[in-house]
Nucleic acid binder design. Structure first.
Lengths: 148, 148
DNA sequence: GGATATTGTTGTTACTAACAACATAAATCA
DNA sequence: TGATTTATGTTGTTAGTAACAACAATATCC
């Protein structure tokens, strides 16, 4: 169908635009808190998925283990993360957050959510809910396409 | 309202997830065509907004002029862009695409759209339309918040 | 005509991120 | 058990993303 292709095109545009403004906003908001976007994403993942090995963290974040290792390094240096050896596997490390790290993430998260809330303050709840459902579907579809 | 905050949080999550898979996908698809994501974005902007000065291109892309200058440089080196002096303003340059650049963008665009189409093939049209409307609203809202 | 503003480039810095090579440890298997 | 293979993390290297500052050249304004 031709209409499907047109919708695909429109959707691609819309997502692209949204990605751009979101990224821009995130950079501003997050970087004002002494961590980079990738570092913040690692904080988030550790908060939500609990203590993780480096390998598992990398997988969660869809990043290479080397990239992940360096992101964690910077969080260690800043005192936001902890690295403890796994007693059962001498190769592995357990990654977790310090209280400072948890607090920092809570602060950043709060400010991001507040901004998001102010953005949707004018939009009816049912419209937001519909969008939510759709974004979820799109994400799943995209993940499937990536074979993940 | 508390429900507004919850929706904001859910929306933030959803957008974040979508951004991640999209970015991942775009990197793969675009980089297999000999240009980077930023370069492809410049191609796109030049295709859609016609010949532009560097300053205007930077504005369209929300990038610094120095970053833009370097992105264009790489497109010039690869033979995808053209830089001509503006006869009315000796400081300025007119940026446009070579036929090769136009062709390349058409190819990349086609493959991205095809992928998007296959992602939404299972989703009813009216649902896609609703999502489109919403993504647009969100983008506008975000732009307004950024003072743009 | 001189001060000021605009346009674009270059220097510098930091972040994002992958791949390859490596060391160490664990697991497998012969 | 000992040798090979696999798994985990780190480090070296490379390339892309992107901003800010300093600068040169040109335009504009007074």
């Amino acid at each position: 169908m031709d209409s499907k292709l047109k919708r695909a095109e429109a959707l691609y545009e819309a997502v692209n635009q949204l990605i751009r403004v979101h990224q821009f906003r995130d950079r501003e908001s997050i970087c004002s808190h002494n961590v980079s976007v990738a570092q913040c994403y690692a904080l988030e993942t550790l908060v939500k998925r609990g203590p993780l090995r480096l390998k598992d963290l990398a997988e969660e974040m869809c990043l290479d283990k080397s990239t992940t290792s360096r992101v964690i390094d910077s969080l260690l240096r800043k005192g936001y993360a902890l690295k403890t050896l796994d007693p059962l596997d001498q190769r592995a490390v357990q990654l977790s957050l310090t209280p400072a790290g948890q607090e920092l993430y809570a602060t950043i998260h709060k400010s991001l959510i507040a901004e998001e809330a102010s953005m949707i303050s004018d939009i009816p709840d049912e419209v937001v809910d519909a969008a939510l459902a759709l974004l979820g579907k799109l994400t799943v579809a995209a993940r499937v396409r990536l074979g993940n």
